[in-house]
């Protein structure tokens, strides 16, 4: 049979493409990521990281000692929900006492909210 084996479904990166990148000399996992684009789509590597790391091991004989840098976020986040965050995060760590005073309107203790 002949068909594509998709290592990264989000960016349509095939097994063939990853093998080609390794053959071109992109043998470390960060370089393979950049050259093929795997792990840069919707799932950010949840599905494909291991698939690609295992192909690197198969082709180079060594499983990568570290994965690609895990960057935020793990799940996609709507910008609109983040837009008000400036009011609840601060650049400095404030003391417990100050925090209560500064952020009263937005601070909840998690109780009584819809579960």
């Amino acid at each position: 049979m002949s068909g594509k084996t998709l290592l990264c479904r989000c960016e349509d990166v095939t097994l063939d493409e990853v093998e080609h990148a390794i053959a071109k000399g992109h043998t470390d996992i960060e370089s393979v990521k950049r050259f093929t684009g795997f792990a840069t789509g919707w799932c950010q590597g949840k599905q494909c990281l291991i698939a690609c790391a295992r192909v690197i091991e198969d082709k180079t004989g060594a499983f990568p000692l570290a994965p690609i840098t895990p960057r935020p976020p793990v799940h996609p986040m709507p910008l609109g929900m983040l837009a008000g965050l400036a009011n609840v995060v601060s650049t400095e760590r404030v003391t417990h006492h100050e925090r209560g005073a500064v952020r009263k309107p937005n601070v909840g203790n998690g109780e009584g909210e819809s579960q």
């Binding site: 609109g80 929900m81 983040l82 008000g84 965050l85 995060v89 925090r99 937005n106 601070v107 909210e113």
Partner: peptide, 9 residues
């Protein structure tokens, strides 16, 4: 227009 973020300690 989502709800405003909530801080939880």
């Amino acid at each position: 227009e989502p709800m405003a973020p909530l801080a939880m300690d």
